[in-house]
């Protein structure tokens, strides 16, 4: 058994042991029956022909219904654990992850950057918002029993709460080319005070939100996105306070302004036009890196303090998955 180093790990292992027990039970049952029959009813004379038995409705019903019920128990339990794994909590520490062939780049909310190492405090929920510069990767920490694919063109999220200080393997689980097996790292779980010390020991640069703010200036976003939006004479919608809120679109639909929506609006602005505005914003595809995009989004998030930590809910993630970037309606 691998180390159980997160709050989820025990839940996954309990499920594992449950099904291991069932598996052993059925394997032993069938194998024992086979061995018994094969020995007991071995052929005694070359020409012997046993009396045929054609079947039994009663037995068929039993071995359809009972395995079905047992399978359903596994289904329900499995779904329950899955929800625990993928329902992203709201009150979590935000860490941004960008995968690229063949390394992991992380940035802490206070600005510290790491490559192939991730320092986290124990006993605190950590939310990872992840994307990749190139191919699909998958962020996997076996000792935490968590895994999530990192997909180009969108943000995926995962969370965990580490329960034991220590160093744990970080693996890329999705084949990503030549050095896939070297795209590994270490997650270092520290006690909260150690983590604070580590943070201050790593001369903090600007936080992602502050870096985003600078970018916001240099890219000239401020010329259109004024506070007050159209009423204040801005050609683009106001960004303060929109994160996590529903946005009314041209054509009557509404979307929740989550990370994937903001990303799409920067890279492909004409995909979803806010009601009352026209499609005049140029695309920033190719002009901002994945990390800069995350910083811009962190900045926009920071403009909505009340819902600044509104998580991308599972339902939103699903919506994002079904309407990828650039899909026009």
């Amino acid at each position: 058994m691998p180390e159980q180093a997160s709050t989820i790990a025990q839940q996954v292992d309990a499920l594992f042991y449950y099904w291991l027990g069932i598996t052993l039970f059925f394997t032993v049952l069938i194998v024992a029956a086979i061995i018994l029959f094969v020995v007991k009813y071995r052929r005694r004379a070359p020409g012997e022909i046993p009396r045929p038995i054609f079947g039994s409705m009663k037995l068929e019903t039993i071995w359809i219904v009972i395995p079905f019920l047992i399978a359903m128990s596994l289904f329900v339990w499995g779904a329950k654990v899955y929800f625990a794994q993928y329902r992203i909590p709201k009150d979590a520490l935000d860490i941004y992850v960008v995968g690229k062939q063949w390394m992991w780049k992380m940035q802490h909310p206070t600005g510290q950057r790491e490559i192939n190492e991730l320092h986290v405090p124990m006993g605190r929920k950590i939310r990872l918002t992840m994307t990749t510069e190139d191919v699909i990767h998958s962020f996997y920490i076996p000792d935490f029993r968590v895994k999530m694919d990192v997909v180009p063109g969108r943000y995926t999220q995962m969370w965990f709460e580490a329960t034991k200080p220590g160093r744990y393997h970080l693996f890329c689980a999705e084949y990503c080319g030549m050095n896939h097996s070297r795209m590994t790292g270490t997650v270092i779980v520290m006690r909260p005070d150690e983590y604070q010390a580590w943070l201050s020991g790593n001369t903090s640069q600007l936080s992602p939100a502050q870096q985003g703010e600078q970018l916001f200036q240099t890219l000239g976003c401020t010329t259109c996105h004024l506070n007050g939006g159209r009423d204040a004479g801005g050609r683009g919608p106001q960004l303060a306070g929109i994160f996590g809120k529903p946005v009314q679109l041209e054509g009557g639909q509404t979307v929740v302004a989550d990370e994937n929506y903001l990303r799409e609006s920067i890279l492909n602005p004409s995909a979803k036009i806010v009601a009352g505005y026209s499609a005049i914003m140029p695309t920033y595809q190719g002009q901002v890196s994945e990390e800069q995009l995350l910083q811009l989004i962190a900045y926009i998030k920071s403009l909505s303090p009340q819902s600044g930590n509104a998580a991308m809910t599972s339902a939103n993630a699903a919506q994002a998955a079904s309407s990828p970037n650039g899909q026009r309606r």
Binding site: L15, W19, S138, Y140, V146
Partner: peptide, 10 residues
């Protein structure tokens, strides 16, 4: 089993 697959997938 969804929750188990997350760990053992790939």
């Amino acid at each position: 089993a969804l929750g188990l697959d997350v760990h053992v997938h790939d």
